[in-house]
Amino acid sequence: MFDLKKYRKKSPWILHYNAGSCNGCDIEILASLAPKYDLERFGVINTGNPKQSDIFLVTGPVTYRSRERLVELYTQMPEPKVVIAVGSCTCTGGVFRDMYNVEDGIDRYIPVDVYIAGCAVSPELIIDGVVKALEILEKKSKEMEKALKLFKEATSENGVINRRNVALKVGEVHEEN
């Protein structure tokens, strides 16, 4: 049968979000899109729009201010989607670990599929990570994926699921760290 799934990895569109990084990895991401590494040859487009993207490239250790946005952007991405944590600080907190205003890695908030280590990561690694992520993407189902915190169940009305308010504001729930 004509299998639509195999096209997922042929056209990965990227949403790039900076959750408080030092911009080191952001520059590397841009470098990997630019002519020298040319990520576009895999069909990658940097859309900047969560509603049309498949891969969520996050850099930075998640500062307090950016928690809500991270979850909100994540919930606005349609399934199937994968999350790539780019850079050491994104994976574990890296050089920012245990600081008073950061959350030590994005996997406290959203499920991560690929971790790319390095401070800063090299474009080759990013490309490698994206290709890995594509393999995962191909296997994913269209089930709703949920954030780990700041998230509540979606309501459904007449069979239509309403995701409008599933991502919460920081003050709205009691959080234990």
């Binding site: 639509l4 096209y7 997922r8 056209s11 040319d38 576009e40 049309q52 498949d54 349609p78």
Partner: peptide, 22 residues
């Protein structure tokens, strides 16, 4: 640059059909 394959728009199309719709 090398650029995407010629059929890239159609790959995009099939992918978009496959995605969850919002």
């Amino acid at each position: 640059r090398q650029g995407p394959p010629l059929l890239q728009p159609f790959y995009d199309m099939f992918k978009l059909i496959d995605k969850q719709a919002f």
